[in-house]
Computed example of a mutant assay.
Amino acid sequence: MSSPFNAVLRRGLLAGAFAGLTAALMSMLLVQAPLQASLGIEEARSHASGEHAHEEMFSRPVQVVGGMVAAVLVGVAIGVIFAVVFASVRHRMTARTDFGRSLQLTAVGFFAVSLLPAVKYPANPPGVGETESVSGRTLAYFSFIAAGIVIVLAAHHLRGYLAARGWSPSSSVTATAAATVVLTGVALWAWPANPDPIPADVPAALLWQFRLASLAELAGMWAALGFSFGLLNEPNRTEAPTEALAT
């Protein structure tokens, strides 16, 4: 017989697959149009400079399908991690149902892993960014994700600390929210800016269309993950001690 933790893990895998499929479909509907326009600008730039565009290993349709498959696989990985974290912190969350707890964890995950990095380092389409700066930009991006997770953990522990000191729920939430805003502001100020300038031939409207579409894709993935995991988990919820989920 499977353990409660294994059951939660399977639900995370299923919810992650659904979230990845949602992200893939949103990419097709929202991201592909500005992406194609950006590729056209990049190709025109190569022709204008007299360079010959290199032959791609895979055709554009194959790349699109590969990107959709990758989105599903990433969704599955995130779903598994989500399930492990949920099983570990379920008994510490304030929502009364597993559906509500799933939405709470989804909001935290989206804020720390997707929204904050998108504010500091918004997605750029092809043709924006120098090859030489890829390593530095990647390091800054993932370190900022780590900073977002640290901010969330600090806020969680601060709220628990204030509650243990007799603060009212409303006061502890207000103080925690204020501290989170301050820490977020410090992180946004402390991390280096994106070193790559925006080329003059990339229209601002196209740039922001791509950035907002990319963020919408991430938001759709997290929303699909939270709702589907909550719905899968809620019918199986018990009031037994949650520590059993992690065993």
Score class of each variant (00 low, 15 high):
4 P>W: 00
5 F>L: 09
9 L>Y: 05
11 R>H: 10
12 G>Q: 02
14 L>R: 12
17 A>N: 14
19 A>M: 04
20 G>M: 09
25 L>C: 06
25 L>W: 03
32 Q>V: 10
33 A>G: 08
38 S>W: 03
43 E>H: 11
43 E>S: 10
52 H>D: 08
54 H>M: 14
61 P>C: 06
63 Q>V: 08
64 V>S: 07
65 V>S: 14
65 V>M: 12
65 V>W: 15
67 G>C: 13
68 M>H: 03
68 M>Q: 10
72 V>F: 05
76 V>F: 10
81 I>A: 14
81 I>M: 11
83 A>S: 07
84 V>Q: 13
85 V>R: 00
88 S>H: 12
90 R>Y: 03
94 T>E: 14
94 T>H: 05
97 T>L: 01
98 D>Y: 00
100 G>K: 12
107 A>C: 10
107 A>H: 10
107 A>W: 09
111 F>C: 05
116 L>E: 00
119 V>R: 01
119 V>M: 10
123 A>W: 03
124 N>T: 14
125 P>I: 02
126 P>H: 10
130 E>A: 13
132 E>D: 11
134 V>T: 11
135 S>Q: 14
140 A>S: 14
140 A>G: 08
146 A>S: 13
149 I>K: 04
149 I>L: 12
149 I>T: 03
151 I>E: 03
155 A>E: 03
155 A>F: 05
157 H>V: 09
162 L>D: 00
164 A>D: 04
169 P>D: 14
171 S>F: 08
173 V>I: 08
183 L>W: 05
184 T>C: 07
185 G>M: 02
187 A>I: 01
187 A>P: 13
189 W>C: 01
190 A>Y: 09
191 W>N: 09
195 P>C: 01
199 P>Q: 07
201 D>K: 04
206 L>R: 08
206 L>V: 12
207 L>K: 04
208 W>Y: 06
212 L>M: 12
216 A>S: 15
217 E>V: 13
217 E>Y: 07
218 L>Q: 15
224 A>D: 01
224 A>R: 02
226 G>K: 05
231 L>W: 11
232 L>H: 01
233 N>Q: 12
233 N>R: 10
235 P>Q: 00
237 R>N: 01
242 T>M: 07
247 T>D: 13
